[in-house]
Simulated assay, not measured.
Amino acid sequence: MSSRPREAEATGLELYDRTARDAAATVISRYSTSFALACRLLGPRPRPHVRTVYALVRIADEIVDGPATAAGLSTDAARQVLDDLESETLAAVERRYSSNLVVHAFALTARECGIGEDLVRPFFASMRTDLTQSSHDGASHDAYVYGSAEVVGLMCLQVFVNAGSPHPVSPSADLVDGARRLGAAFQDVNFLRDLDHDAQALGRDYLGVAEGAVDREQVLDRIDADLAAAAAVIPRLPADCRRAVTAAHDLFAELSARLRSAPAPSRRVRVPDIVKARLAARAALGFAPREVRA
């Protein structure tokens, strides 16, 4: 009698679906060890869906941030590739199939969890901004952060609330606000960490800090206020999501604290692996998100 695992028996569309999800997981494991660590703290219900969301985000980000240029694509060509990816993503959600494995995996998640065009389009709009706009004022910063980070938090929230359910529902207003503010905090932390790289390698200034238009301490204060607001609603997330979100929150709270103590870092501020492991262990044990000075 055969003792092959059930996965080996899948055929047709079922096999393709599984392969697509595996491809998404591979993308994340290659690009973000911190995210991969936090993702392992998710329960089996939301975990594969969150991976597919971040895999699509990563692929789109790479079109505007390096590999496409390294491959010789012009700005116009990169924009066309990005436009095609957006069109393929929206079409795949409707038809439940894509020849692009990452898009296929995302479409499965979007259909099951209720991720709609209202979240997909703002994300791609922000990605297009990176191809044409090098500096931002307050209004364009907020619009960019909404599309590039807040909607990603909202996509994940749709997963947290709806994965495994037959009919997606809308999350509560307090969870929506928390997801948006956590996404915004993550993005602004990354902007501060990558200030020199963005300016020198990409010619971009998302915050106006380098030109003196915005005070760095004000940005850190905003980050900490967003982290504090997000922490307040994490306990209201489904139980199989809280530990992972707490770990991510605490990692960025640690980064914020390190950025504040290094007002003019000469190197990219990072959290040592041993500290990351300690934060993950703390979250895994069920501790509440760490307090942040808001």
Rank of each mutant, 00 (worst) to 15 (best):
P48E: 03
D22H: 12
R21V: 15
R51F: 08
L41Y: 09
S2M: 03
Y16W: 15
A10S: 07
T19P: 01
I28M: 15
V27E: 05
G12D: 15
P48W: 01
R6P: 01
S34Q: 13
R45Y: 00
L13C: 05
Y31S: 15
E7F: 09
T11W: 09
A38M: 11
R45F: 00
R51D: 01
A10W: 08
S32Q: 08
A24C: 13
S34R: 07
R18D: 11
R30Q: 14
L37N: 05
S3K: 11
S32K: 07
A8Y: 05
L13P: 08
S34W: 10
R30V: 10
A36Q: 07
P5S: 09
P44D: 00
E7S: 07
R18A: 12
E14Y: 11
A10F: 15
R21C: 13
A25R: 12
L15N: 11
R4S: 09
P5I: 08
R40V: 03
V50L: 07
H49V: 03
R18E: 09
L42S: 05
I28F: 07
P48V: 02
R51C: 01
R6M: 06
Y31H: 15
L13A: 13
L13V: 14
F35L: 13
T11V: 14
P46L: 01
A10E: 12
L37A: 15
S29T: 15
P44C: 00
A8L: 15
R30I: 00
G12I: 06
L42N: 01
A23L: 07
R30G: 02
D17C: 14
S29H: 13
T19K: 02
E9P: 02
G43I: 02
H49F: 03
V27Q: 13
P46G: 00
C39D: 06
A20V: 06
R47H: 08
L41N: 10
Y16L: 14
A25E: 14
A38R: 08
S3C: 14
L42H: 00
S29G: 06
S3V: 12
E7Q: 08
A25D: 12
R6N: 01
R30C: 09
T19N: 11
S3R: 07
S32V: 05
V27Y: 06
E14W: 07
G43W: 01
D17I: 13
T33R: 14
Y16N: 12
